[in-house]
Simulated scan of single mutants.
Amino acid sequence: MDITTRTLNKVPEVTLYFWIIKVLCTTVGETAADFLNVNLGLGLTNTTLVMGALLIVVIYAQFRARRYLPAVYWLAVVLISIVGTLITDSLIDNFGVSLEVTTVMFGVALALTFATWYASERTLSIHTIYTMRREAFYWLAILFTFALGTAAGDLAAEQLGLGYLPSAIIFAVLIAIVAGARFGLRANGVATFWIAYILTRPLGASLGDYLAQPTEDGGLGLGTVATSGLFLATILVFVSYLAVTRRDAIEATA
């Protein structure tokens, strides 16, 4: 497919379902990465390679699709959430890069992605993801939001000592402020969408850690297996509903 070939819009409408599934995916990204790395004993490097390979396969299917397919799209989000977490963890654990540096590094990478995307397409709107080039920018931005959110969430909860639940509450309040700016003050829709999208990652990561981590570490002690299974099952229910009803499908616009 040519990078300028038009298709139907390849991403879902931003509804309440979108935000619920997005937070669930971010939580799974945090807990599933820990489960594969630690509980199954794959190790950080092997887990990253395996999940990276799976992500490439699913992203290929997403690019080949001619319209938005809920199952393919949200599977890609789950996998990119896991891979984003693993990239950040690899930099910290394998290469000794600090949380402060990784947070700044991925923040800069995301900013450069947005700048290049806008310079090329003159828009960052997700309502116009109907060419391969725009879709490539979209998924690259999402990868960096997940990596950035993982680093920022761990920085707040662990490095700054705020704890998992307080960190989740702080990020939830920030998202509520962004929502208030959008709907109360009529702030720019594209800007507020991406700010909220970025903030949902550390929210989900902090929530996942709070549920999964042992009580002595400030969590509820549910473990990564139970937490990942619960959230994956919930994602499956929502995505199945959307696949049948198509309530979040949108057409491409100019």
Rank of each mutant, 00 (worst) to 15 (best):
A152E: 03
G180H: 08
L162Q: 06
A157L: 04
R182M: 13
V173T: 07
A156Q: 02
I169H: 01
R186T: 12
W194K: 07
L162H: 02
F183T: 15
L160D: 02
Y197R: 08
L165N: 06
E158W: 00
L143H: 01
V178D: 10
R133C: 11
Y138N: 13
G153A: 01
R134Y: 04
T200I: 11
A136I: 09
R182Y: 13
A151Q: 05
V190P: 14
P166W: 01
T192M: 13
I169D: 02
F183R: 13
I142P: 06
F193P: 15
T145C: 09
G189H: 11
W194C: 15
I170M: 10
I142A: 10
G153N: 00
A168K: 04
A179G: 11
D154A: 13
A176D: 06
G153Q: 00
D154I: 08
A172H: 02
L155R: 05
F193L: 14
L185A: 14
R133M: 08
A156F: 03
I198Y: 00
Y164W: 10
T192F: 08
A179C: 07
R186I: 11
A147K: 02
I175N: 03
A147R: 01
T192Q: 12
A152Y: 01
L199V: 12
Y138S: 15
Y138M: 14
L162M: 13
L199D: 05
T192C: 10
A147S: 15
E135I: 05
S167I: 01
A157T: 03
A156N: 02
A141R: 01
I195D: 10
A136V: 12
T192E: 11
L174T: 07
A172W: 01
I198R: 00
E158T: 09
F171W: 02
N188I: 10
L174A: 12
V190M: 10
A152K: 02
F183A: 12
T150M: 05
G153T: 00
I170W: 02
R133H: 04
E135V: 04
L148I: 08
F137A: 14
W194N: 13
Y164G: 15
F183E: 11
T200Q: 03
I170E: 04
A168P: 12
T200M: 08
Q159T: 15
W194D: 12
A152G: 05
L185S: 09
W139V: 11
L148N: 10
L185T: 07
E135L: 05
L174V: 13
A181W: 09
I198V: 14
R134W: 03
F144A: 14
F137S: 14
E135C: 09
A136Q: 04
F171E: 06
L143R: 01
A136W: 00
G153I: 00
A191W: 01
T200G: 08
G161D: 04
A191R: 06
L140T: 15
L199N: 04
A187N: 08
A152R: 01
A176R: 01
L199K: 03
A147Y: 00
L140F: 06
T145G: 12
Y164R: 08
G189I: 09
N188K: 09
Y138T: 13
A187L: 13
V178F: 03
A141I: 07
I142W: 00
L185R: 10
D154Q: 10
A181C: 14
A141T: 06
L174K: 04
I175S: 07
R186Y: 08
I170P: 14
N188R: 05
F146P: 15
A157P: 07
T192H: 05
L143N: 01
A181F: 08
I195V: 15
G161K: 03
A172K: 04
L155I: 10
